[in-house]
C-alpha cells in the first residue's frame, strides 16, 4: 500500500502524539500527587486531540475511507510511524519527565514552524496545539529543575532518566526524502533544522537543574518512521487495540 506523502507525514506526527498520549494515560492513578494525575491526564488529552486531527486528516488525504479509529486500531505495528522515544516504557517519574522535556521541546519547535505550513489543515492544527505544547514544555521544565536540583536521590534518578532516553533523541531530528519532498512544497518542516534550537533550550534547563548532558545514540536511527519499533511497542498496541479488534465492525 502506498500512501500519499502528505498522509504519511500526518500519520508520523499523529502517531507520535497518539503513542505518547497512551503512555501518559498509564500514569493516571499512579502519579506522585493528585495534581500530577490531573496534569498528566491533561497533557495526554491534548496529545490525543492532536492525534485525532492528524489521523483523520491522514485518512482524508489517503481517500481510501479510513477513519481515525481504523488508523489507530487496525494498523499493525509495522505500519505505525512514531519515533521510538514516545513508545519507551514510563519506568519512573524521572524517566517520564525526561521524555516530556525531550519530546515537548522538539514538538513545540516543530509546531511553531508548522503554523506557517502551506497546508491549511496542518497549519491550523499546529496553531491550536502550539499553546498546549508550550504548557507541556513548561510543565516538564519545572519538574526537571525540581528533580535535578532537589534531593540527592531525585538528582540521581533524573540524571539516570536522561541517560536512559538520550539514545533516542537523534531519531527525532532525522529527515528523509519523503519529508524533504514536502519541505520543498512548503508543507513540512525539516526536522533536522530544529536541532540547534532544541540543544540550546535543553542545555539551558540541564545546566540550571545541575544535570549533565548525556552522550550517545543508537544505530540505525530513523527506525520508527519506517515502521521498525522497539519491543515494548507490541505490548502497547496489544493493549490499545485488543477490544476494538475483538468486535470487527462494531460501533462504540
Amino acid at each position: 500500500m502506498t500512501m500519499p506523502a502528505l498522509a504519511t507525514y500526518a500519520l508520523r506526527l499523529g502517531d507520535d502524539a497518539l503513542v505518547l498520549s497512551h503512555r501518559l494515560g498509564e500514569w493516571v492513578t499512579n502519579a506522585p500527587q493528585l495534581e500530577e494525575d490531573v496534569a498528566l491526564a491533561n497533557i495526554g488529552l491534548d496529545l490525543l486531540g492532536q492525534a485525532r486531527t492528524l489521523l483523520s486528516y491522514a485518512g482524508d488525504v489517503e481517500a481510501a475511507g479510513r477513519t481515525e479509529d481504523d488508523l489507530a486500531y487496525l494498523r499493525d505495528e509495522r505500519e505505525f510511524l512514531n519515533v521510538h522515544l514516545v513508545e519507551r516504557p514510563n519506568e519512573d517519574f524521572a524517566v517520564s519527565m525526561a521524555r516530556q522535556l525531550l519530546f515537548s521541546t522538539y514538538q513545540l519547535a516543530l509546531y511553531e514552524r508548522l503554523q506557517d505550513s502551506a497546508d491549511p489543515t496542518l497549519a491550523g492544527m499546529a496553531a491550536k496545539a502550539v499553546k498546549e505544547v508550550d504548557y507541556h514544555r513548561d510543565h516538564a521544565t519545572q519538574w526537571v529543575l525540581r528533580l535535578g536540583d532537589g534531593t540527592d536521590e531525585s538528582h540521581r534518578r533524573m540524571q539516570a532518566g536522561l541517560e536512559r532516553l538520550w539514545p533516542y533523541v537523534d531519531e527525532v531530528f532525522g529527515t528523509d526524502d519523503l519529508e524533504q519532498s514536502l519541505v520543498a512544497d512548503g508543507i513540512a518542516v525539516d526536522a533536522s533544522t530544529l536541532r540547534a534550537g532544541w540543544d540550546g533550550y535543553v542545555d539551558g534547563v540541564l545546566a540550571e537543574a545541575t544535570l549533565t548532558r548525556p552522550e550517545g545514540t543508537r544505530t540505525p536511527p530513523g527506525g520508527g518512521r519506517r515502521g521498525i519499533h522497539t519491543e515494548p511497542m507490541g505490548f502497547l498496541l496489544a493493549e490499545m487495540q485488543h477490544l476494538h479488534r475483538a468486535h470487527p465492525g462494531a460501533s462504540w
Binding site: P32, D92, T151, S154
Partner: peptide, 13 residues
C-alpha cells in the same frame, strides 16, 4: 513510589 518526587519538590522549593 511518589515520595521521593514530593521530597524533591519540597527541597527545591
Amino acid at each position: 513510589d511518589g515520595a521521593w518526587v514530593r521530597e524533591a519538590a519540597a527541597a527545591y522549593a
